[in-house]
Structure formats: structure tokens, C-alpha cells
Design a binder for these strands. Sequence first.
DNA 1: ATGAAAGCGCTAACAT
DNA 2: ATGTTAGCGCTTTCAT
Lengths: 348, 348
Amino acid sequence: MSPPPPPRKRRATITTVAEAAGVAPSTVSRAFSNPGRVNHVTREHVLEVAARLGYSPDPTARALGTGRTGTVALVVPDITNPYFAGVVKGAERAAAEARLTLVIGDSQESPAQEERLVERLGRAVDGFVIMASRMPDEALRRAAELNPLVLVNRAVPGLTSVVADFASGTRQIVTHLASHGHRSFVFLGGPAESWSGAQRWIGLRTAAEELGLSATRFGPYTPTMASGPAAADALLTSGATAVVAHNDVLAIGVLRRLEERGVRVPEQLSVVGFDDIFGADFCHPPLTTLAERTTEAGGRAVETLAALTRPGAVPASPEAPPAPVRVLPTQLVVRHSSGPAPRREVTP
Amino acid sequence: MSPPPPPRKRRATITTVAEAAGVAPSTVSRAFSNPGRVNHVTREHVLEVAARLGYSPDPTARALGTGRTGTVALVVPDITNPYFAGVVKGAERAAAEARLTLVIGDSQESPAQEERLVERLGRAVDGFVIMASRMPDEALRRAAELNPLVLVNRAVPGLTSVVADFASGTRQIVTHLASHGHRSFVFLGGPAESWSGAQRWIGLRTAAEELGLSATRFGPYTPTMASGPAAADALLTSGATAVVAHNDVLAIGVLRRLEERGVRVPEQLSVVGFDDIFGADFCHPPLTTLAERTTEAGGRAVETLAALTRPGAVPASPEAPPAPVRVLPTQLVVRHSSGPAPRREVTP
DNA sequence: ATGAAAGCGCTAACAT
DNA sequence: ATGTTAGCGCTTTCAT
């Protein structure tokens, strides 16, 4: 009944290798981390012995001395959300290029869990890229004092970040709707802690005002498909002709519910999402949505982080210049979930 | 132009705290990791000082001594594949229950990258759960000698694992097809290194034989939507009436291509997938697919791992009993992508 | 109950 | 070019 005990082997250490090779531990160390400062032939020899013993340097022990681990962490609010796939891919590519190991942490949409993760991983990694952080500004600033850190889709004064151009994106959405004769729309809001959610709403409202539409916010809703029915039902009582959802998974959940309830999209109701996730192009009908350059965002974020963690970088400087925030373009992908506003019954 | 230097703060160490609290470092250590072996009031005091200084023990340094880090790694072949979402969720729940931190590594479908990851993370975590490993048996065995390790959807003699019941699952699929009058089907194979891919094909072929159908394998195909067109086109030339794809994302890719080419599903062709991923229920038509208990698999895997990594566990025992493999049931979810075989032109 | 000291695996001066 | 030594932050005997 007890788990089987596969025999565990003791790993070779630098001392083991040193003895077996007849050299000092420091020579072994150099052979691995400072080639060029050791004779070529002894290096060969050491490496060979090490290989035979199955030795490889312990990054943990190394880190204790140097403070550098060669690992960076990407933390996301919900790895289950296909939205983050692009960020992960981009981050992986950039990490590989910078010869960094990437680990992923999932905060499960919980600010507390996110803090715990950052706290816990802080000593084990060289830095963080935090995607769509739910942590309060203050906590983020504190974290940034302990570890290099770059934010994606979250801006905090003083911290470096890469964000999508929501101002432009939301304007594209509202313009699209207006051009189809919609006079108003409702926004299905996401989590209260979501910075990008806030940006989306601000942008939407501003654009609506400029274009003379009226905008109403519903929610907040958890951005999962399971929230679709509640959101859709709320929507239906409002008589809206168009709806913009916090993100695509919520939008798809809404779409499903509308279909269940016999509401035709886009004939009776237009729906627009954010993110252009896996599935947005094959749901029914295919979803009009604002696409971000997530892969690029992930890549740029770890590139920036890599620069921040490179040896020479970042001695404590009291008078730091404002951290740069890099803005990435967004693009509205028009599919079939949005179209002309339904005609009103007008008495002639 | 250079990245902004946010001033970095030095973390408090056990010594800092000891001095500030007027006790020895060992007392601080005990206050954190061995309460009960320190006077209650001094403990309170130490903890308070530590909090004031923002101190928390460095898991890395701790690991150097104890060999335990409180972290486990989940490695997956492609975090981008929605299939893994369930495993991740289950693993997270179980990790939280066992008070373990979970990090995720993505091997990007590369056996080499997977090995590198395991090698690199080996010292930084207490153990691994490796999902759908692409590594050769031998490499896996070697890894298991260095770290506790449990496999998901991969069986290697001697190693502990949790796997889906593909024998039953594939029989369900073939029975479903046979009951609809299909006399043959083609299997769109996945990556050559995929153990579960192999199991799927073996099961399919066996069941087909028993039920008197004929089965043909195509591929291998990369299990992404991008492979859909090639797979679908190959399929079309074969005149098959039914197709079983390596997984859902490939199946959905095929579905899209078929729609493009005007092939009606399921009237002209039935398609079945594996995994029941996000999207399988809202693609067009909704996909018939074999559902696994991925969340349970992820949960059980880290539970098992947690048991394996618990202090007392697993001293090197030479004569280990065969490791248990736990089999989880599978269930065919019939949706609208599969149905009766098209009638053949039969001359009477 | 607490302190002192050794050591975990490695790197980085400092010697030689 | 290589060996010696002193830590890195923590846990853990062993004393007291």
C-alpha cells in the first residue's frame, strides 16, 4: 500500500569530482564556470571525470554564493486561460535566447497567492515577469525592491512594464460598433483587481463619450465560461444591442448561453471580446475580439528582465529615472459575432 | 535608453534578525522551523523582530542543508495545449494541500529540453511530476534515481505513474463507430515519442480487430491546429468514413479544414478526438471525444509525490517492489461530430 | 531553553 | 595555472 521506494542515488559534488580528478575543488568550479582561467587539458580531464560521475553543478548552492540562479519566473493569474499561452511562448523563446530557465507560477486569480508565490520564489529566481498582476501597487513596489521585476499589462509608477495599447484598442471597438449603428453597449466587467480590466472600461467609456454612444458596466464577473450564463441573462434584461466582454472566455460563455436562449448573434445582439484566444476563431459564431501581441509582450518582458538581471545591472541608485513602460499595439479582429444594430420598432 | 535602476534592497538574514533580537542565529532558526523547541515568549519576540525587518527564511539556503525545498515541479510538453489545464489545476490543489509550492516547466515537446529542465530543476525542487513525458525510459529511470518522480500518462517499468485507461477508452470509441455502421477508420497519429499516442493506437487497433473494423494510421502529425489542413487533406484522399485524431486540437484543426473544403461532418465523415479540451464543446460541430480525468490525475500525481518526498520516505532500498501504476477511467463524450456512416452506393 | 560551531555545495578573493 | 580559505544563509549536533 505504501509508495514504492525507488532507491535514491546521492549526487556527486564538486569535492567528489575534485578528488577523483586529483585537483582542488576550485579547479573543478572554474572548469565549469570560468573556462579560460584553467588549463585546457586539465579542464578536459575534469570535465571527463565529472561526466563519468554524473556530476553537474548545483544551481542552488551556486546561487547561495553568487546570488544568481539563471532562472526567472513568469507568474500568471490563471495558466488555464488560453490567453496566457502567447505570453508563455514569447517568454520561453526569450528566456532560451538569454540562456535562462523559465518556471511558471500560477496565482489562481488570488492576490494573496500571488504574493506568496513571489515571496517564496524570490530567492530561487533571478527575477520575475508578472502578467496581469492582481497585487496592490504597494506590494508590487516592495517586491521590486527585492527582485528585478517586469510587469505585463499592469502599470505601476516607477516599475517597468509592457502593456497593450488599450486606449487605441477600445476606440477601435467602439468605432466598429458605432459604424454599425449601435447607440449604446454594455461592458461585462472582470475581476476588480484587474488593471487591464480597468483600462478596458476606461477606454471604452472615453471612446463611447467621444463617439456619442452610451456605455454601461455590468459585473464584476469571474472571467470563466461558467460566468457566461449569469452575464448573458443580465444582459438580456437590459435590452442592449451590443456587448463587450472583459475577455474572450467570458464572451464565449455568453455566446453559448445566448444560443441556448435562442438569441441570434449578431442579428439581435453583437458581442465583442478581448484577447483573441484559442477558440475565438472557431466558436459559434466566430468572435470579434481585440487581439494583443501577447507573444511579443512575453518576449519583450523577459528580454527586459534579462537586462535587469545581468551582472552589472542595477546597483542601488537612489535617484532612479521613471521606469519605461513599453506600449504594444492592439488590433481589432472582426469576425461574425458583431454586425449591424437591430432595427428598432419606430412608429412613422 | 538603459533599463531604469530601481534600487535593490538587501534582504534581512537570520543573523540580522538574531542581532536585532539579541539572540543566537540558531534560536531564530528554531523559532521558524522548530517551534516548541524554543521558549514561547522568545519565539514571539523573534517572530516580531523578523516581521519588522521583513525577514523570511531563504528556502534555497535551507535546502542546501536539509535537501528539502518545499517545491515540486510539474513538467508538461506544451503548456499552451488546453489539455494540460486540468492537470495543472489538480496539481495545484494537491500541492496547496500538501503545503508545497508548485512550479511549472514547459518542455515544448522536446525530449532534450525536457531533460535539461529536469536536470536543471533537480536540485531546486523536491520532486517532479512529469506529464506525458517524451524522454526515453532510460533517461526517466536515471532522473528517478536523483529525484522522487511520478509520471502521468506514461508508464515505465519500475516507476510510479498515473495513467488514463486508454484500453477502455479506445474500445468505447471503436464501439461507438461500429454501432454507427462504420467499417473502418483512420487514426491521425501524434508525436512518435508520445507514449499515450502509442497507447491510443494500440487500443484502437486492438478494439478494431475485435469488432471487425479496419484501422489505418496516418501521420505522425504535430498535435496543433496548424496540422489540421495537412491531416484533413490526407484523409480526404483516403475515402475514410471516420477519423480518430491523436487529440482534440488536431481534431479541431481537421474540422476547420473540412468545413473549408465543404465536407459535411458528421454526414460525410465522422471525427473523434481525445482529451475533451476547452473548445471541444463549442467548436463546430461540437466534438465527440474521449474525456480523461485530468484534474484527478494531476491531483493524485502530486499527492503521491508528496508522500514520496516526505522526510521519512524512500531510503535507498535495493529490492524495491514494482512501482504502482494507478489507472484512471476514461469516458467517451458523444457530441455532434460523429454519427452514422454515409451510405455506400451499393448495386442491388 | 539557548548558544557555539560545523557543514551543506559552491564561488571568489587571495596565495602560491 | 592551481590550491587554500573564507564565506553565502540556514540547520543541526553538541555543549552549556
